[in-house]
């Protein structure tokens, strides 16, 4: 991989495409000026190059979606992780880690990336988008810890809110009788109480909270309606009886 970068670097310089280099000769980079042919790619350029290489590798494997090439994705995930750890605080690092979180097939690689995003980029708003994806995933000890850290450490409301929603969703993905109902409820409640700047999430959280009223063990909420002949009646009219409530339709 590294050799590819160098080749491209050389081509760019020789071709003289007027790459938007840093202006002025006095660049802090130690290697600047040491060798004209071997200017190292900036982290951004390395990221772009890795992306291109990945696309080519996937195309070569005859699989444009990359869906059938988990090994290729994981192989590149390793390279993106390397790039990220070379410049851990940079935007490129975040983009690289995000690439791994999204494209890697191996959960261990994904977790490694997300752990680093949480450790070094807890205020990067890109985490909000990641959290929407996290919400769809099954609960694990790792994701629980990652999302909890975001909720505790991030100074950005959209990140804290989306992490709270994602964690509540993950906790809700296990069968109903195994759920930590109190924890799920308090997470949704905290979104409603604390994140008024995120109206869509507040709406989703209150909707989720409402569903708890219809769980086993709860007193059934009242139904005050009309029968098929237009006569008014209530569900509570049947207190004192065992009631089978059947949502039905003849179709």
């Amino acid at each position: 991989m590294r050799s590819v970068c160098w080749v491209v670097a050389v081509m760019v310089l020789v071709g003289g495409c007027g790459a938007p280099d840093q202006p002025g000769p006095d660049v802090s980079d130690k290697d600047a000026g040491s060798s004209k042919e071997t200017r190292p790619l900036s982290p951004e350029e390395q990221f772009e190059q890795l992306n291109l290489d990945y696309v080519q590798a996937v195309e070569k494997a005859g699989d444009e979606d990359g869906l059938q090439s988990p090994t290729v994705a994981d192989q590149y995930a390793g390279k993106f992780l390397e790039l990220a750890s070379a410049h851990p605080e940079s935007r490129t690092a975040f983009a690289s880690l995000n690439w791994v979180a999204v494209f890697a097939k191996d959960p261990a690689l994904q977790n490694q990336a997300i752990d680093q995003m949480v450790a070094n980029h807890v205020d990067n708003v890109g985490l909000s988008r990641l959290n929407m994806q996290m919400a769809q995933k099954p609960l694990s000890d790792e994701s629980d810890a990652q999302l909890t850290t975001m909720i505790e450490k991030s100074s950005d409301e959209s990140i804290r809110a989306s992490a709270t929603m994602a964690l509540a969703r993950q906790l809700s993905s296990v069968p109903e009788d195994q759920q930590d109902e109190e924890r799920i409820k308090s997470l949704y409640q905290s979104v409603v109480d604390q994140y008024t700047s995120q109206p869509r999430m507040v709406a989703a959280a209150s909707q989720a909270l409402a569903k708890f009223r219809f769980r086993i063990g709860q007193i059934a909420p009242e139904i005050d309606g009309e029968d098929l002949d237009g006569q008014a009646f209530k569900l509570s009219d049947y207190r004192g009886k065992v009631v089978v409530l059947d949502f039905w339709g003849d179709w």
């Binding site: 063990g217 569900l235 004192g240 009631v243 089978v244 059947d246 949502f247 039905w248 339709g249």
Partner: peptide, 19 residues
């Protein structure tokens, strides 16, 4: 309101009205 998305959906309540 009851969050029903499949038909039929059945709830069985006891005499106290508890699901």
């Amino acid at each position: 309101e009851w969050g029903v998305t499949g038909w039929p959906t059945i709830y069985v309540l006891d005499a106290e009205g508890k699901i």
